[in-house]
C-alpha cells in the first residue's frame, strides 16, 4: 500500500503573525526528526517561501497541475534544511482565484506525494474559499494566533469555519510571538474559551513560540533559524512543537 503523507495545514486568518516563518522552521524541525517533509507554499497570491529562503524555482505550480512537469521535478531541495519545497509562485493567481476543481487537484497531488511522511501547507492569510477548503481537508490544522486582539478574532474566524466544515477534525492552536510562556498560555485560554462557548469546539494547544529577536535576524538574512541560531528560545519552542506533532501522529 502506498504511503500516504500526513497533511498539516497552517493558517492564521490574519497576516503578519509569523505563519510562513513558522512553517519553514517547523519543516526543518520535523525533517530533523527523521521523516521526509514537503512544504507547500499555499499562499499563492503572495508566495514567499522561496523569497524567505532565497531560492529560485524552476517550475510553476501550474505546470505540475497541467501534468507537464512531475512533482519530483518541481520541488526544490533546501540545501541546509533537509526538506523539500513546492513553490506556489505562479501565473496561476491566488488560491481564491483557483476554481474548486484546481483546489481539489492540488489536494490530491499532495495526498499522493508518497515520498513524504509529512506535507505542510502554508495557507495564505484571509478566509477565501480555497484556504477554507484546504484547512478543512488537512489531517491536522494548526491555527496561529498572537496576543493581539485582531489576531485573536481572525484566528477565531478560522476556527469557526473549521468547526462548520470539519467538526470532528484535529485542529490545534499555536501561539506565536508570545512575550512569555505564561502570556502565551493566557492567549491560548482566551481563544479556547471563545471556541468552547461559541463553537462547542475545544482545540488543544499545539505549543507556544516565544518572541525572539533572533527570528527577525534569521529572516533578514534569508537563513533558517535552526541553522543560524539553533539554541535560541524560539528554536527550542518549535522543536518541542515538532516533537509533540510527531508523538501524536504515532499514537
Amino acid at each position: 500500500m502506498p504511503n500516504r503523507p500526513r497533511l498539516i495545514a497552517i493558517a492564521s486568518g490574519k497576516g503578519g503573525v509569523g505563519k510562513t516563518w513558522f512553517a519553514i522552521t517547523l519543516a526543518q524541525a520535523l525533517a530533523a526528526r527523521g521523516g521526509p517533509v514537503l512544504l507547500f507554499d499555499g499562499d499563492l497570491g503572495l508566495a514567499n517561501v522561496d523569497v524567505q529562503l532565497g531560492l529560485t524555482p524552476q517550475h510553476e505550480l501550474g505546470s505540475v497541475l497541467s501534468g507537464r512537469v512531475s512533482l519530483a521535478q518541481a520541488v526544490l531541495r533546501h540545501p541546509e534544511g533537509g526538506f523539500d519545497i513546492l513553490p506556489g509562485s505562479s501565473g496561476s493567481g491566488t488560491l481564491s482565484g483557483l476554481d474548486p476543481a484546481s483546489v481539489e487537484q492540488i489536494l490530491s497531488l499532495l495526498r499522493g506525494a508518497g515520498a513524504y511522511d509529512t506535507v505542510l501547507l502554508d495557507l495564505g492569510a484571509g478566509l477565501e474559499r480555497g484556504v477554507r477548503r484546504m484547512a478543512a481537508a488537512a489531517d491536522t490544522l494548526l491555527t496561529i494566533a498572537t496576543e493581539e486582539p485582531t489576531s485573536l478574532t481572525d484566528a477565531y474566524a478560522v476556527m469557526k469555519l473549521y468547526a462548520n466544515d470539519a467538526r470532528q477534525g484535529d485542529a490545534r492552536i499555536l501561539v506565536n510571538q508570545a512575550t512569555t510562556h505564561a502570556a502565551g498560555l493566557r492567549t491560548y485560554e482566551t481563544l479556547r474559551r471563545a471556541c468552547v462557548s461559541f463553537l462547542r469546539l475545544d482545540p488543544p494547544l499545539a505549543g507556544i513560540v516565544r518572541r525572539d529577536d533572533r527570528v527577525r535576524d534569521a529572516i533578514r538574512r534569508q537563513s533558517l533559524l535552526l541553522v543560524r541560531h539553533p539554541t535560541c528560545a524560539a528554536a527550542a519552542d518549535v522543536e518541542a512543537i515538532a516533537a509533540g506533532l510527531s508523538q501524536r501522529a504515532a499514537a
Binding site: R132, K160, N164, D165
Partner: peptide
C-alpha cells in the same frame, strides 16, 4: 457578552470579553 479572561494589571483588573454575532457561517464547499 462572554468573559474570555481576566488578569490583574497596574490599574486594577483587565477583562477580555467577546460577543458573537448570530450570523451563521456560510455553508461549506462540501
Amino acid at each position: 457578552a462572554l468573559i474570555l479572561g481576566t488578569r490583574p494589571v497596574q490599574e486594577g483588573v483587565e477583562i477580555t470579553a467577546a460577543l458573537e454575532s448570530a450570523a451563521s457561517v456560510a455553508p461549506a464547499a462540501r
